[in-house]
Design a protein around this nucleic acid. Structure first.
Lengths: 135, 135
DNA sequence: ATAACATCCGTACCATGATACGGAGTCAAG
DNA sequence: CTTGACTCCGTATCATGGTACGGATGTTAT
């Protein structure tokens, strides 16, 4: 069983140590007992696979557009019995994601037109505002 | 020629008055001359179609993922001669958008699995963290 | 056993994008 | 000619998601 310190956990999660501590303050990650005594760990908190999974989940959920508050709720639900709530949150987010994806796709199309209109071949000003206007 | 006050401009752009003023402070929108005298407008700034287009552009560009600083640059380029820079910015943003869209699509797939796994039919806890883990 | 390095923790600060407040001035309607 | 809505402007505050600092303590390599 792979145990590590906060720095290792941060590395596994692709975040900084300060970010881990921030998540702990937010209640998203736990703060394990400081291993007392002195031999091989004492006063220093040790983290395991579960913590790594949890941290990675936080990051993934963030890319899905959940706020840290919502992620907190998801983490609470993970242990709980309220399947319905979890289902609802997921559905809501899927709708939001579909909207967002459509929005970004439209923006991409505009940018393509813009890049085209302002192709590096010709000179003079290119109508940036107008390129977006055509949406 | 449709002229309006700051409240009308804000309404057209789908933002609040304070947001318009914020954009002015950031230099993204201009502050027209206050129409002096007293008959039909005096001391109050008036905005026109150009301002509305500009404001809408700002909002659209934001959904494309540009920061307000970048939008400031785009607005400056709109009048300028540097087609190449505009082209570059557009290209860069398209790449970033493609990444973001892929990311959101992956997240959507995870959420679909999650919604499925936590379907409202059965009881008990559902493994939220694990549903995302499978990515 | 001691230097070099990490951890722990509280607290402060940062960037981004707004939003709120409050007092003075402007303006249209009754 | 006042009332009520709106504008103007400076300045303050907020929400989100971090990042930085610094002193005390713990750990490890030489």
């Amino acid at each position: 069983m792979k145990e590590t310190t906060i720095a290792g956990l941060a590395r596994e999660g692709g975040v900084g140590v300060e970010t881990v501590r921030y998540y702990q303050r937010r209640g998203l990650l736990g703060t394990p007992q400081r291993t007392g005594g002195t031999g091989l760990g004492g006063g220093i908190r040790r983290y395991g696979e579960d913590d790594i999974r949890r941290l990675r989940f936080i990051r993934t959920a963030q890319t899905a557009g959940f706020t840290l508050d919502e992620i907190g709720e998801l983490l609470a639900l993970d242990a709980g019995e309220d399947r319905h709530r979890a289902h609802t949150l997921a559905r809501e987010r899927i709708v939001a994601l579909d909207e967002k994806i459509a929005e970004l796709s439209a923006a991409r199309a505009s940018l393509l037109r813009l890049a085209d209109a302002c192709g590096s071949t010709s000179k003079g000003p290119c109508p940036i505002i107008t390129a977006f206007d055509l949406e």
